[in-house]
Design a protein around this nucleic acid. Structure first.
Lengths: 193, 193, 193, 193
DNA sequence: GATGAATGAGCGTTCATTCAT
DNA sequence: AATGAATGAACGCTCATTCAT
């Protein structure tokens, strides 16, 4: 079974993702990726124009994966409130289950790299738009005033903060991770009522 | 009055923090620090074993400075609820005023730092302990059951998430930063009631 | 009618010359040649051992093309003096129309070229021999003493100097390029009288 | 006797000049310079901002050396015509005696490198201005009409062409170098009358 | 014969670190 | 203690060349 193009591209992406998660952005180098992936340095440049593009593709991949996962979860529920709750749980779950994707998506600032492509940016927004639409569905008294977007950002930042803190191992050992998560979830849900 | 050891050490730390906040981590170099601080390049190595140690010491000092700043702010208020509100505002303010510095304080994974001393860790926790004590002061119905620590982590994660999202420029242009912050603050405050 | 070997070889040489003249030597790459010529990268190596050989063949061909072009121009004139004048003008014209190519033909030191074949050398001399024959045709009082070769080198060096100076953009802006060229031409022509 | 700063700078310039003369511009690399000079790669960057600046300094050095040499020679003569003749001879002599300087001055196009500094450019013009002033001194019938500048460029291009052809070893063995030079000189001198 | 994916030496440049003074 | 010239490993990236198909 020969290694076809797609395989090498994926191999490079996988390798880069692992290295980023393990060693962080500052110690990531094209040479290290090549060596770890077992390919030549120049080979990377066949599949990715430059380092930034490689990272962008990686980020894009993460947002896509997360969005698909969230949408699938939400679609299993019919009732508005349950759909929102499912989203919130699924978001935290995704972050904790896929640290190698989640960290890359948020630990790097797109603007520190040369112009994150507009089309990728739009894709990165889709999860957030999904959240906003779910909030609209619930239709609380707080909404209806165009506050849904603001609310979606508030909830997102709470979820994001929680995931980040857990992934960074900043949660004290004396605290139950589950209790913390439930606390964050109930806080988020209560904010839409 | 001669410049004594402590002065130069502090000078280097201050300079580094300023450079970090102003120009970002990627453009931080030992040469630049030396030049800006007005000392010789080699001099830095007298006070700091290497760049990593300098950064670690800086982070340590950063947590200390943040803690002192938060405590000072809190002490200006007498009423429990106002003290808590002051803390929350001051925390976000600190993060936004020291973007690169805040990120380095939190985005560096503990596991990635080579032997980050346990005693520095403890210092990093003090702001969180202050928050917990403020929550206890407020003394809501939700507390009193040992839930204050959990609550402090929830609030912290909301604040941290908000700061992170703003710093990463992930906030949509159509959203007012101030409105977002107020929304996060009121959410945090309401959670202790 | 299939493309035969000779065609592809010529295609590659033509493409390379065009790229050289248009974009310069520093931006010339085997990849670019292949892409512009519309053939595969590896194909070039079937007809040329390596890049150096390709360039040498190109130079060789360039001398040939220049010679043919000069001869053709000269043949349009019947009178000896006009033929010489036509040569001179055509020489300068060729240099200015093919800047990078002219430079590569002459700026490469013979000693630096790895084993530049003796037979190619001879070909490079033909334009000069043509010039010499034209001078003999004019038959001034200065000639007839075997001085024609010397004269041809003098004139050539004047032309070569003028072309080189223009190509190197060393001509002051306040000087008209045309006036300069006319001045050089009349100087050259007067030297054979 | 310790090696002082000036020595290393000069060592690097000397080494670069030799490498350029021997191997040409295309095979010149900072690594090669460092290795040949016997210093570290980074050391070069202490004395020269980048490769272009190093080359610029080299070119500048050559123009300065040539100008000083020409001026000195000219000053030894009192009569206008003799001064001009001395200049012409000295120019060719300088080129032939200092190939490593002369080639670098003219074989590289300043504009292919990032902006050749205005002040260096002015310095490069001084020899030409000296020639122009000598032509004015002679004051032939051809001059007096503002044609001196044009004339100086014509003469310069003839001299430059001759030097270039000799240095590039393009002069046929059957030709006497001295005869060729005398031929060029008399051609140049006759053009101002 | 024709192809182009794969390679890795080499490029200019940066910068943490060392060490003689 | 204080300095900064000197170093060389490492960076992102290019490109001539090879070779399996």
């Amino acid at each position: 079974m020969p290694i076809v193009e797609q395989d090498i591209r994926e191999l490079i992406l996988d390798t880069t993702r692992n290295l980023l998660t393990r060693d962080g952005y500052n110690s990531l180098s094209m040479r290290k990726i090549a060596k770890t992936a077992g390919c030549g340095l120049g080979t990377i440049y066949i599949y990715f124009e430059n380092k930034d593009v490689l990272i962008h593709d990686l980020i894009d991949e993460g947002f896509e994966k997360m969005y698909l996962s969230l949408r699938e979860t939400v679609e299993k529920e019919k009732e508005a409130r349950l759909r929102l709750a499912a989203f919130i749980r699924a978001y935290i779950h995704f972050g904790l289950q896929n640290p190698e994707f989640y960290e890359i998506m948020y630990l790097l600032h797109p603007e520190r790299m040369q112009r994150y492509p507009r089309e990728k940016y739009r894709r990165a927004r889709r999860s957030l738009e999904l959240l906003e639409s779910l909030i609209k569905e619930v239709g609380s008294k707080k909404s209806g005033l165009g506050k849904e977007q603001l609310l979606s950002y508030s909830i997102w930042s709470a979820l994001h903060g929680a995931v980040t803190i857990i992934l960074a191992k900043r949660l004290d050992n004396s605290i139950s991770r589950e209790a913390f998560i439930e606390s964050v979830i109930s806080g988020a849900l209560s904010s839409v009522e």
